[in-house]
Design a protein around this nucleic acid. Structure first.
Length: 425
RNA sequence: GUGCCUGUAGCUCAAUGGUGGAGCGCCUCACUGUGGAUGAGGAGGUCGUGGGUUCGACCCCCAUCAGGCACCCCA
């Protein structure tokens, strides 16, 4: 066999069974997003690199973006994230769009990373944002959307949890420890590392980043304080509202959640798998200057992003992905020989008009082979149209699960198929 | 960028340095109007690639390519 040209590293092939899982997941995303009144949007996959240079972390553009020059010598990049595109789209029509806007999107993104479990170079990301209000009720709504999604997939609060924190709360708490403004960014990084390093390593890392031993101890007790949120009016209001959404079980306070990006200003949150690998599933928060960097007036907003790769792993491990996804055909119409082919086509079309998913066997193979083919495609019902049936203007309908077979008139065909399908959907 | 592991049939994987196998899948037949089972037969391989050691290499060594995993980084 000739050598097959391999696929590009970090990309995935979606065979029908894979595509069915993706479709299932995306349908839940769409359903939940629109149920909360969000509108679908999208931007181009290609952008000028300048769009990201302004805002995204330097790292993201310089090291992780697919950048290339077009034949016209433009420096282009395959979008590594959607937020800058959203910012531009909003800025371009800032006074046309009714605020607050609720937009969601799902599409492909690219990052030049080293592929490993849960990480590919080409992936899909769900983005959802509520822009134009700084009310804490907006924060609660966005987190409720995330929680509702998790719930709809079948994941339980014992399997996943959304951990919430607040940047302003942490800011003032850090100030109480006499941590200087200039140090805060690196302290946030220290916080971010606490569960990734051993106790000793973490202490060393904390001291290295410029904190005193006293401050490190203070920070440590701060991060253990499960009641810290009560000091924040915003968080108190937030948790009250999230209860009203009925998804309180999925949401919890966690002072360790801080998130790397600089542009978050208030509420920040991350969903994690509980136990197991405790992988991060989605993350987001409040930002107060969405469009400022692309030249518009500052707009407050809140949103999150979720990658499909880790999400699918979590769903798979949790065992919540339904069996038999995808559009399995319901009926196969067999073809006896060349003379009966046109009758088979007519019957197949009748069934299609009635809304069934129908496969017509493409050749004149012997019945055994046609049934075997139906088996492999997991089709539950077969229609047989041979010379005997044609002569009596009947059709034979066979339930391939139970082997039951009956001859019925053409008029009774749909009724009979419906009977078999109800018994084995 | 660093480290570890793996490349053998379409797929999943075996094979003490001495003539490359199994399971699944595929094709044919038993079965010329009825499938999942069973049995019989069959097709299918440059052992990732290139060097080296050896009387002899799938096996040992080196290089290289590809894939996976864990770091680093990050959502």
């Amino acid at each position: 066999m000739a050598e097959i040209i391999r696929s590009v590293k970090g990309t995935r092939d979606f065979y029908p069974e894979d595509m069915a899982v993706r479709r299932w997941m995306f349908d839940i995303i769409r359903e939940v997003s629109t149920r909360f009144g969000y509108q679908e949007y999208d931007g181009p996959c290609l952008e000028f690199i300048d769009l990201y240079a302004a805002k995204s972390g330097e790292e993201l553009v310089k090291e992780q973006a697919f950048v290339f020059s077009s034949p016209g010598d433009d420096l282009l990049t395959l979008r590594p994230e959607l937020t800058p595109t959203l910012a531009r789209m909003v800025a371009q029509q800032q006074f046309e769009i009714p605020m607050p806007l609720r937009w969601w999107s799902i599409g492909p993104f690219w990052r030049y990373e080293k592929p490993q479990r849960g990480r590919t170079r080409e992936f899909f990301q769900w983005n959802i944002d509520l822009v134009g209000t700084e009310k804490v009720s907006a924060d609660a709504e966005i987190v409720a959307v995330a929680a509702t999604f998790l719930q709809e997939t079948g994941l339980s609060p014992e399997q996943v949890r959304i951990f919430v924190n607040n940047r302003r709360l942490m800011d003032s708490a850090l100030s109480r420890l006499d941590i200087d403004e200039t140090l805060k960014t690196s302290v946030f990084r220290v916080v971010d590392k606490i569960d990734k390093l051993s106790k000793r390593e973490w202490q060393a890392f904390a001291l290295e980043s410029g904190m005193t031993q006293e401050q490190v101890d203070g920070l440590l007790s701060l991060l253990k304080d499960e009641d810290l949120w009560k000091e924040s009016d915003e968080l108190v209001a937030f948790f009250e509202l999230i209860q009203s959404y009925g998804v309180g079980d999925y949401v919890a306070f966690n002072p360790k959640v801080i998130r790397g990006l600089d542009y978050y200003t208030g509420t920040v949150f991350e969903a994690f798998e509980i136990g197991g690998k405790s992988r991060a599933i989605l993350g987001g928060g409040r930002y107060d200057n969405l469009v400022a960097d692309v030249g518009g007036n500052p707009l407050p907003g809140v949103g999150f992003a979720m990658g499909d790769v880790v999400m699918e792993l979590v769903l798979r491990d949790a065992g919540v992905i339904p069996e038999n996804l995808g559009n399995i055909s319901q009926v196969i119409v067999t073809v006896f020989n060349e003379e009966t082919l046109s009758e088979s086509i007519k019957v197949a079309n009748t069934l299609r008009d009635a809304g069934y998913r129908v496969v017509l066997y493409p050749e004149f193979d012997k019945m055994g082979k046609q049934f075997k083919y139906a088996d492999r495609l997991n089709i539950p019902v077969a229609v047989i149209l041979g010379p005997d049936e044609l002569e009596k203007s009947e059709v034979a309908v066979k339930n391939l699960r139970t082997r039951e077979q009956v001859n019925v008139s053409r008029e009774m065909l749909i009724e009979q198929i419906e009977k078999f399908l109800q018994r084995s959907p």
